[in-house]
Each structure stands twice: as C-alpha cells, then as structure tokens.
Design a binder for these strands. Structure first.
Length: 708
DNA sequence: CTGGGGTCTT
DNA sequence: AAGACCC
C-alpha cells in the first residue's frame, strides 16, 4: 500500500524559491558504463528540479506514471535534506564535563587494555582511537586515563542529545552513542515557504570543496537552510548539554555522514550535489564507505576492487553474479554516493545487554558469579526502562589460539512471565535469583563443564521488549495521546516521510508542536539578530510545559516514588532542584584524584582546526557565534542532575548562565505510561515487526530522555 | 593486548 | 543462532 503525504501539508504557494538547483552530480563521475539502473536513478534524482514546492499536488498524479520499474518512487524523496551529527570524542567529552579539570590534560578513555577514545589534547601528542594503553603511554607518558567500561553516563548523555534533536523534528535515527541522522526536509520546506523574496541565502559553516567565492547558496536553497538548521541544532547541543560536535548536510545519509567528518572537530560542512563525485573519490578505500564492512571489502578486493572508483566502474552484471543483484546494486549505489535509505526513527532500544571481557575464566563458579554480577546491573537497567523483556540470551566467547577474536556463541530462552513482571515491578533481587539458573542452563547448552573450558567474554541480553498496558490511573491528555493504537505502517516506498503519522511519533510530535509555537517569532532564516536573553524570556513566557507535565514528575532516585507523588508540588520541585541533587551527589561521590595537574581552569574550545588533506575548502565564517544564535526551542532538556557543584563552578560563566536558566525551568519529565497494542494475530514478518515495535515503543523512548 | 555496546538480515 | 554492519 502506498501512503502519500497528506495533501493538507499546507505549503505556501511559493514557486519562486523552488529548488531549481542545477543537478550535474553524476555527470561529474566519469562513468563509461552507465547502464539502465543508473539512468533510472538519474531520472529520479533529476525530477526534483522540476517538481518541488508543490509536490503534494504533483506527486499523486505523476509518480505512478513516472515509475519505470516496479518500484514507485515519490519525487519528493529526491530532494531530501539530511543532517548527520557526530559528537567529538564523545566519551572523553562526557568525562571532561564530569570533571572539568580533565579538559586541559591529555585524556584517554580506557576499556580494558584499549584507549577507545581520547581528547584533542591527547591527540596532539600522538594518541589515537583504539590504541593500546601500552602504546599510548609510550607516546604520551602524561596521559591521564579514565576507565570507560561502564557506559551509563555515556548512554545518558547520548540520549539527551537524541532527545534534543527530537524536539526539533521527529525523524531522528541514532547510530551508536555519538551519532544521529536527522531528516529535516520538512523543516526546510517550511522555512522556504516563509522566506521573503528579498532574503538571500547563505551557507553556515564549511562547504565541501568550495571557497567562499564560488559557493552560491541561492543555487542550493535547501542545503543552505539545512546548514542553518544544523548550526542551530549544534548550538543547542552545546548550550543545553555542553557537548560539541560536527555536522554534515547533504541529500542523503551516506553523503551527510561522509561530509560531516571532513572538518573536525566542532565544525560543520555542506556537500553540494555537484561535489558528490569529489567526496566519493577522496575516500582512500572501499572500507571507508559506510556499509562496506570488513567482509565485503575482502570479497571486493578478491575481485580486484580496492578503490571507490574501481567499484563505480565495475560492470554491475559481474558484481551481481558474485554478490547477488540486490547487494550489487546497493554497493554500486553507495560507491556513487546514492543512498535512498530513509532516516528511520530509532525509538527506544530493541535490546539491552551487558557484557564483560576478561583474559581467562575457566570455572563454573566464576561464571556464575560473573553472570550474577552482569544480571544485577542489566535487570536494574531493564527495570528503569519499564518494558518487560520476553527473551533472555547468554553469549560467550571462547579462547582459542586460532580465530580467537571472532566467533561468539549464544543461546536464548523465553523469560517466564512471572520473572519478567518482577523486573518491571522492581523486585530486582528475586528477578536476578530466578534468572541465574536460567542463564546457567543456557551456559551448559554451550559448554560442557566436565571438560576444560576457557572463556574470554560473557554477555547477557534482554530482547523482545514489550510495553505494559496503559497506566491504571487516568493521567490526562498526554496519556491518551500515547495510548492510541498503532496505525498501519506506511509503505517503505514513501521516503518523503510523513510526520503526521500516528502514535508512533506522538512524543516528538507533541514536542514539535510546542516548538513550532515557540519559533513562530523567530525569523526563519539563519541571519537572525535575536539576543539570546530575550529569546529565553520569550521561551519561558510562551512555551512552558509545566502545565502539561506537572503530574508526571519523576522522583529523584533516592525517594520512594509512591511517597514522592503524594508530596505537594512545591516540595516535589524542591527535591528535584539540581542544587538539592548536587549536594546529595557531592556527599555520595568524589572525583577520582587527578594524576598530575591541579590547574582547575576550565578553558573550553582550544580545539585546533585541522584541514583534511588534499581537499580545497574554505571556512566561510566562524560557524558558531554561540552567544547570539541560541534558539529557544527545546522544551525539556535538562542538564544532568548529577553534576557536582564544584564541577559546575568550573564551567565558563556563559555556560553556567545558560545551565542555570535551564535548571530554573526544570521541566518535570514525562513519565510514560505505555500502550500495548493488541497482537493483531500476525506472525509479524520481519518488516512489520520493525514497524510495530517502533510504534509501541515510542512512548518508552521518553524514559531515556529524562534527567539523571 | 580489540570495548561495550547496538542494528538488521540470513 | 549466526553473521553482517555501525559506533
């Protein structure tokens, strides 16, 4: 079934600024062997030249006729504006926020024997990602190490970033903890419609392979506006959360991701269609293409393909014979910079797992102890999530001299309902006690404990996560908003993504609505002159969410939720005050002593701006004029509650001020009652499973978006 | 002496 | 259940 965007997507009758970009894109690539599939794509991509702004009216009539193959394509899908955000040395940044004294020292985040990431001070001294501790200490003896095996803080900060992005736009897809894709096509169209003809376009940040002289933004209005949106979002991430990162602006996920890494750190870059060939050609090898992993690269190398150009020029038929038609086409498209994949809202996670690796474990006793330990933290996380896991999986890695770094084995089993309910209700101890024997049973399906064994990793995982039924007590408008049943999933074909879809987007749509109310006074264009203090005031006056959220306040971790709910709102608020939480925190924990440096100066942004080799670019302006650009958009983004007051005092005054202003609002958090759709009697085929899962989980997602 | 997570497909 | 991919 093909679901088209509703015609009610009211678009101002502005034909004037339609995106009449010149589309030379693939012409830049010197392809001697263009075949039919390329032509099809070509037609599709060029279509948007001619039918843009009034696409809602044009699409239904034209798209079936235009389709040359079995796949129906909507012209609107060709002119997407996709952003990719990539936080700078994410774990290191989180640790530097937790302890600002780390900002000025070379810092490495250590997991076992590996430096998984490091700050830029350390990079200046030759430390790199995924370097062994030994090598790193050799390169940089003063390197300060922080253990990073516990991902809790990183996970929390990661979801704050995703939530902030969701407050602008519902189409946010996570990739790992530190990257997000955002499809801002609709936002761009909205702003385009509001633009007056006297306005001129400009790019924010870098433009790949262009200098300021020749990057003409008026030829690329969509990307130009996208670059301003990206700048606003990056600035929000910095001012509200305290993290810096890069962004890429392009017409698909592949290109957005590739271009976001061309200026690092803390910069952003636009890729124009005319430079697609350039950026693909710049890649040093096929492995650099996202989607081409180790195995695929090896198979391609066996065919004599090592560069992106090799793959572009390799006959598609030959490739299909080796890898299958689908994979062949996909890989070739990737090599050409073509990627039609949609930005799929990630929603709440599909699984939660906890693992530990070690040199040697050979006794059942040790195994049981480790399983119990892992289960303890996993069950607690699962409880906080609120959903009930239906499946448990145990994974091990055995030591073996040959092939030791790969190959894990796993066994899984259903979780008895009673155990699942204990997790949900918070009976952690009992749940763990009942899960341990289950895990041991699975363990013995893999390992004969009579014989000798040698494990190097154990992983425990909950999956098939199901939401509870609606909360017993009526909670008002928001709850009913969330408890709508899932609507039929839109067809995959529609990659112009319909945001007015259903409960699936309920949470972010609510936020989105608040935001558009907020931003009505904000000039749609990037060159705004609004002063941030005034913006904050406007925001507080017009966009408070207190009334909506006030009965969903979540108690601090040390307070019984039942008791907390009974307290007067004033008291609740006081308990939630960051100062209260902080004072508690400072009594309960202290910072790790810092190896050598005691200069507590919190000097942010001494990042050096490096240029990518062999790429001609310009730094059009200093991208972030931070103080001026901040837009009052996010409705409920709170700085982490577990900030030490001392740490806070080290922050730069401007950041402190912004944080204070955030905290003052201290938006109580949506506690999400969840909806459980009726099974609908389907043995969900994996395509549907994804859709169903996402829609039922959208409300749970909010759980990850609350202040610690 | 290559983490501790995740995703989706086969 | 394994294997591919991503960070």
């Amino acid at each position: 079934m093909l679901t088209l965007p509703p015609l009610s997507m009211q678009r101002a009758p502005s034909g004037r600024h339609a995106w009449c970009c010149r589309v030379n894109k693939l012409a830049d690539i010197n392809l001697s062997e263009m075949d039919n599939s390329d032509i099809e794509v070509e037609e599709d991509e060029s279509e948007w030249k001619t039918c843009f702004v009034d696409s809602a009216a044009v699409c239904p009539a034209t798209s079936p006729a235009a389709a040359s193959g079995p796949v129906i394509k909507i012209p609107g899908s060709a002119h997407r504006v996709i952003l990719h955000f990539d936080l700078d040395c994410f774990y290191a940044q989180v640790e530097m926020i937790r302890n600002p004294a780390l900002r000025d020292v070379p810092l490495g985040i250590q997991q076992k024997y590996i430096i998984v990431t490091c700050n830029y001070v350390a990079r200046e001294r030759g430390v790199t990602k995924l370097m062994s501790v030994t090598d790193a200490k050799e390169k940089c003896p003063e390197l300060v190490l922080v253990k990073g095996e516990d991902l809790t803080h990183y996970r929390e900060m990661s979801y704050k970033v995703t939530e902030l992005l969701l407050s602008y736009c519902p189409l946010v897809e996570r990739l790992g903890f530190d990257e997000n894709f955002v499809d801002v096509t609709e936002m761009v169209e909205q702003r385009l419609a509001e633009i007056s003809e006297t306005d001129s376009f400009s790019f924010k940040g870098n433009v790949f392979n262009h200098s300021s002289a020749d990057a003409n933004a008026s030829h690329h209005p969509g990307l130009a506006i996208g670059s301003h949106i990206a700048a606003e979002m990056r600035d929000a991430i910095r001012s509200k959360i305290g993290l810096t990162g890069c962004a890429g602006v392009a017409t698909n996920k592949l290109l957005a991701k590739l271009v976001s890494g061309t200026f690092k750190p803390n910069q952003q870059t636009v890729l124009l269609q005319e430079n697609v060939g350039d950026i693909m050609g710049c890649l040093s090898g096929l492995r650099k293409v996202p989607g081409v992993g180790h195995q695929t690269a090896k198979r391609l190398q066996a065919l004599g393909l090592v560069s992106v150009k090799d793959l572009q020029l390799y006959p598609l038929g030959d490739l299909a014979r080796e890898l299958g038609a689908t994979t062949a086409q996909r890989l070739r498209n990737l090599a050409l910079g073509i990627d039609e994949s949609a930005v799929t809202p990630t929603g709440a996670p599909q699984s939660l797992s906890d693992e530990d690796s070690f040199k040697k474990m050979c006794s059942v006793k040790e195994v049981m102890a480790k399983i119990r330990e892992l289960l303890g933290s996993l069950v607690e996380r699962m409880h906080k999530d609120g959903r009930q896991p239906q499946t448990f999986r145990l994974t091990i890695r055995r030591f073996s001299a040959t092939n030791k770094w790969f190959s894990r084995e796993s066994r899984q089993a259903p979780i008895p309902g009673a155990v699942g309910q204990k997790i949900v209700s918070g009976n952690i101890e009992d749940a763990v006690s009942q899960l341990v024997p289950l895990a041991v049973k699975l363990f013995h399906k893999m390992v004969d404990s009579n014989a000798a064994f040698h494990l190097t990793l154990i992983n425990v995982c909950f999956s098939n996560l199901q939401s509870r039924g609606p909360a017993a007590s009526g909670k008002g408008a928001i709850t009913s908003f969330f408890t709508q049943s899932a609507s039929p999933r839109k067809s995959q074909i529609s990659s112009t993504q319909n945001q007015n879809n259903s409960a699936q987007n309920a949470g972010s749509r609510l936020l989105d609505h608040q935001i558009s109310e907020c931003s009505r006074n904000v000039p749609p264009k990037g060159q705004m002159t609004c002063n941030s203090e005034q913006s904050e005031e406007n925001y507080e006056a017009s966009c408070s969410t207190e009334g909506i959220n006030s009965d969903k306040t979540k108690p601090p971790p040390h307070v019984d939720p039942e008791v907390f709910r009974l307290l007067p709102e004033e008291i609740q608020k006081e308990l939630l005050s960051p100062y209260y939480l902080n004072s508690l925190q400072s009594h309960m924990s202290k910072h790790e002593p810092l190896g050598n440096d005691s200069s507590m100066k919190a000097d942010r942004s001494r990042m050096n701006h490096q240029q990518p080799a062999g790429i001609r670019v310009i730094n059009e302006e200093n991208v972030m004029e931070q103080e001026k650009l901040s837009l009052p958009r996010s409705s409920d983004c709170n700085f982490p509650g577990n900030v030490d007051p001392e740490v806070f005092s080290e922050l730069p005054p401007d950041v402190q001020k912004e944080l204070m202003s955030e905290w003052k609002q201290q938006n109580p958090v949506l506690k999400t009652p969840s909806s459980r759709k009726t099974g609908k009697g389907s043995i969900s085929k994996s395509k549907d499973r994804k859709a169903e899962g996402r829609s039922s989980q959208s409300n749970n997602l909010l759980k990850y978006f609350k202040p610690g």
